[in-house]
Write a protein that binds this DNA or RNA. Sequence first.
DNA 1: CCTCATGCTACAAATAACGTAGCGGTACGC
DNA 2: GCGTACCGCTACGTTATTTGTAGCATGAGG
Lengths: 114, 114
Amino acid sequence: MPKKYAAAQKAAVRGSRTGRPIMALLDLLGRRWTLRIIWELRDDGPLTSRALRTACNDASPTVMQSRLSELREAALVELVAGEGYSLTPLGRELMESFQPLNRFAEQWSKQPTS
Amino acid sequence: MPKKYAAAQKAAVRGSRTGRPIMALLDLLGRRWTLRIIWELRDDGPLTSRALRTACNDASPTVMQSRLSELREAALVELVAGEGYSLTPLGRELMESFQPLNRFAEQWSKQPTS
DNA sequence: CCTCATGCTACAAATAACGTAGCGGTACGC
DNA sequence: GCGTACCGCTACGTTATTTGTAGCATGAGG
């Protein structure tokens, strides 16, 4: 049985096997808590891993550490000794890309529910 | 055992229990294949569910249908009879919010791999 | 030494995603 | 009618991921 998912999701996050980096990015960001983590780090300065867990609905430390490792690997998040986790300059640029999302969420929530 | 995750991820996608619609949106978009689906529908006109599955690395029909249902519920995607799935005007606005992401992915992929 | 907080890990149980197969429905050509 | 071939969608058993709880080693400050 081919492990398509495992191969696509676990390996080559940064890889552009398809030649389209956006796929790798979408892959990374599509994992649970990833978007939320980046969002929580948006402007609240460095957060300790535990504070981050609390901010993310008390997500389990297992996934949290997985995501943080992946995000560090991706150079979007860094752990500043004695400070906590924070976005790297690159991660902050990603946040900028998300800026329109907040505005969209507002108008989206006001939409009639189907 | 409290089902924090199930309660947070499954129910109230549109709900603003926290008063922050962005959380509901991040929740929805943080599920597997969701970002990818929206991306694949970006400009390729309507896609049949099977074509969409093919475009998404042959994701299993089970999750695909789940995601499509959620996205339809969220009024981001619609099924046009005889045509296929496509983004709603609202979904297209979301795509616009993602526009900077593509540019970011390009520069991100060129980053030194830690 | 004791307490507290940090980053991080172990492990079993619960949940979600997977792959395969197949359903009912609607066209087609024959 | 009958056979094919699509469509959207579902069942079901297997696999992978997430969850919740507990705990580790380390360091700071009493």
